[in-house]
Design a protein around this nucleic acid. Sequence first.
DNA 1: AACACACTCAACCGCAGCTGC
DNA 2: AGCAGCTGCGGTTGAGTGTGT
Length: 308
Amino acid sequence: MEAMMGWGIEEQGGWRKGPWSPQEDKLLAEYVNVHGEGRWSGVARGSGLNRSGKSCRLRWVNYLRPGLKRGQITPQEEGIIIELHALWGNKWSAIARYLPGRTDNEIKNYWRTHFKKKDTKKQDKRRSQILKQKLHPYDNHAGHHQLQPKEEETSMKGASPTHVEDKTTTSTTHELQSQDDQYHQRQDQMVSRLPNSDDHQGECYNPVMINQDVASWWDTMGDFLDYGSWGDLWNLDDPAAHDHHHHGRMDNGTTTAGLKLATQNNQAVATYCGGNSNIRAIENQANKAFSLGGDYYNNLYNYQGYSF
DNA sequence: AACACACTCAACCGCAGCTGC
DNA sequence: AGCAGCTGCGGTTGAGTGTGT
């Protein structure tokens, strides 16, 4: 008799339900380590567990899978969740792809706990503040040149940025102002963002070559990113996540974008995902930072922008 | 201490989409 | 084309825990 509630052939007495015991976890982990993920109905049959394939998959994905972070959601992760939820709504699995080590279930629970309650005033305010920082990074540059066109920001579907107080400026303001000045003097060195036909997954812009090692690149970018309070969308731990960004293209045409800092042989060392406005801003900043040094064709590294 | 309420999170359920026959 | 099985997703539930009175 087929058991459509779970996956696989249901044993007499039905599948075991409820919390998993350490012994069951061990059995499941051993089975997956040997046979790999997938074919979950086969897990139910072959592992000796009296659990449905569905239950096995859930336990593995949400609890046993290597690389899971556990622990509290950080403010940076919260920011990502809020921004992506504003873009995509309850697409928890899609959002989870941008938070390595977090599961869709975890994010869904977090959202419901923190932002989906009756008493939403405080939560709405916090969400608005974070969205404000995400969607208008340059508003933090009091009196600065608006580097990206406004229409790009409005292209972020579903986002309705509410104006709240700007983040307090820091000591980096002067340095940034100075860089901006030099930037405007050297705009002729800006690298154009022409589509690269080699990329079939999404629109890819020509790589910008930089002549610094990653550490100094990061130092240069770090002030700017921290200052703009959206450096958290960079992913230094799992550069391979870049590939997930490609595969995360939305069917509904939602525009998101990614950047990759990569070695000359195209191996990613850091990736970024976020709204197009942020991507454009980072590109501008990178162009500015590295064109200042001149001779940026000694390409030890490159970065590339993608629009999905 | 005892109770009520709030919160967290693991796990379940139903459904839709995909694939192979 | 239609069916069955598999997979993954989003919504929901409920047990355990924390906190306030």
